[in-house]
């Protein structure tokens, strides 16, 4: 029997809430080194990869690998029923039945909640994703996640053009990042400049540009990533016209969540 135990209920609640809007299923892999999660959205345009090393957990035990596809909406529902300080135990039988049991134990209330999830196909993942090289990107933008969330909120409140999927155009030029969305009767533009690190040393916006670049993304992907970005103080956006964009937030020194998004082409 395999039994990783962990106490990161709040963290997983937030991850599942962020992902379950956009991704239906995810592939989970628990190993001695930690957890790796991958999911692709139904239109196969965005891939999310979450890595959380064993050291990130208060308590983590996993003697043998445990790998499964799970429905994210069901998991989000289960985690909503759990308390934030619950201890989670994950159990799967050695002989590979096709379900996994998540047990939430509340030491304070003396209550145990148990959920069985059926394995699902997990939509063509896992994939081999090479570590990305920053030098391959035309522009790299780093900014506080709170700022990124504000920008996405502004764009999505305006960028609903009605009949088709709203998009955002992100352009980097002259050490500026411009985000643009078109609504029904007008447009919305936010321009961010590189900020002086002396004024706000803790929350700089940094723009490294090799060449000007301008890319179109579906707003729904940006919104999902902005929800996930609450897990970290900063986001990094790597942009290239040849490669999928990488939207990353690092989780302390203990892992990361990355969205790889294929840009739309005119």
């Amino acid at each position: 029997m395999l039994e990783p135990r962990l106490v990161q209920t709040t963290f997983f609640k937030n991850v599942l809430e962020a992902l379950s809007d956009l991704f239906i299923e995810a592939h989970f892999e628990f190993s001695r080194t930690g957890l790796e999660l991958q999911a692709i959205d139904t239109s196969r345009v965005a891939l999310v990869a979450l890595v959380l090393r064993a050291e990130a957990f208060n308590h983590y035990l996993c003697d043998r690998g445990l790998s499964m596809g799970l429905n994210l909406a069901d998991m989000a529902k289960a985690f909503r029923c759990a308390n934030n300080d619950d201890i989670i135990t994950i159990k799967a039988e050695e002989d590979w039945t096709d379900t996994v049991t998540f047990t939430f134990e509340s030491p304070e209330d003396g209550e145990i909640l148990e959920f069985d999830f059926d394995f699902v196909g997990s939509n063509g993942v896992p994939l081999e994703i090479p570590e990305y090289q920053e030098s391959e990107y035309q522009a790299i933008v780093r900014m506080p996640s709170a700022k990124f969330m504000r920008i996405c909120k502004k764009l999505s409140s305006f960028g609903d053009s009605g009949d088709r999927d709203p998009v955002v155009i992100i352009s980097v030029y002259k050490e500026r990042v411009r985000s643009f969305a078109r609504g029904k009767t007008g447009t919305s533009t936010t321009v961010c400049l590189q900020t002086q690190t002396v004024d706000k040393p803790k929350e700089p916006t940094l723009i490294e540009m090799k060449e000007e670049v301008s890319l179109i993304f579906d707003l729904k992907y940006m919104n999902s990533f902005s929800k996930a970005s609450t897990l970290s103080d900063q986001v990094t956006i790597n942009l290239s016209s040849e490669l999928p964009a990488v939207f990353e937030c690092k989780i302390a020194e203990l892992g990361y969540i990355r969205y790889y998004i294929s840009p739309r082409k005119e």
Partner: peptide, 14 residues
């Protein structure tokens, strides 16, 4: 309209 490559074009199966 916009064309769009699928993300799986960039990565290989593990």
């Amino acid at each position: 309209g916009h064309k769009q490559s699928t993300i799986t074009n960039y990565f290989i199966r593990a």
